[in-house]
Design a protein around this nucleic acid. Sequence first.
DNA 1: AGACGTACCTGACCGC
DNA 2: TGCGGTCAGGTACGTC
Length: 278
Amino acid sequence: MPELPEVETVRRGLVPLLEGRRIHAVTLHRPDLRWPLPQGFAKAIAGNVVTALDRRGKYLLWRLQDGTSVLIHLGMSGSFRNRPASNVRDKHDHVVFDLGETALVFNDPRRFGAMDLIAPGGEASHWLLKAMGPEPLSDAFTPDVLRRGLEGRTAPLKAALLDQRTVAGLGNIYVAEALFAAGLSPKRMARSVGAARAERLHCAIRAVLMAAIESGGSSLRDHIRLDGTEGLFQHRFAVYDREGQPCPGCSCDVARTGGVRRMVQSGRSTFYCPTRQR
DNA sequence: AGACGTACCTGACCGC
DNA sequence: TGCGGTCAGGTACGTC
């Protein structure tokens, strides 16, 4: 499911449920998600108050009163639902956080999600976080940082942007949308992006992510907000999942050009406009 | 070192 | 209706 805007939407939805609240108990309905849950996971969390909710790339970080952080990745299909505490289990409910009145349930059909505990001070060296690139909506992400991240790389620009070491939080949808907004071909070699194109791309990445967060993310299959409503950004896609359709503001003869094109790059669908993306 | 394919899972959808 | 094939928003890992 989720790229940065969806994870940020989930984070914002969790704030009123979790911030300042105590997690009374944690129940695991299986010992693993993508990887085994760490030893003592439930016990370490139980009884703690959640002091803050952060996000790093596509990871959620729950800050607990005792200094521990809970690291959570939603994988492709992970979601949180807030349920009456007595409610029966749904299929694929794997982890239950008992909040007293309600139970916050982590449901993940494909089980590509992950959870881990991070001891105080251990975040920078955590194996899943240590190589992660700049946070795209922070001041640390500048056109020059982006340009240097792409420098010398022979991978297609699309692949380089999906690589979380280049910039954190982009996935298949928002890479496609950002490349369209920047007018850059996904096939272009990453190292061919110099200062001027990096400036455009930097601007496009931020604009697309901010607009998507504003819309509550994109709901295609799995992503729903905690209040049960869908994100709306899928209605604003310029190219993603729009094969054969005209791109926004297009004046081409679509019957002749075929409109938005779909191709496969490193095994994944890429959508782009061959006319406006070079 | 860096790029690529493979693997991990389930469910939805399509054509037969 | 049922079956097999394909695809899906992620990413670590092995291989070259």
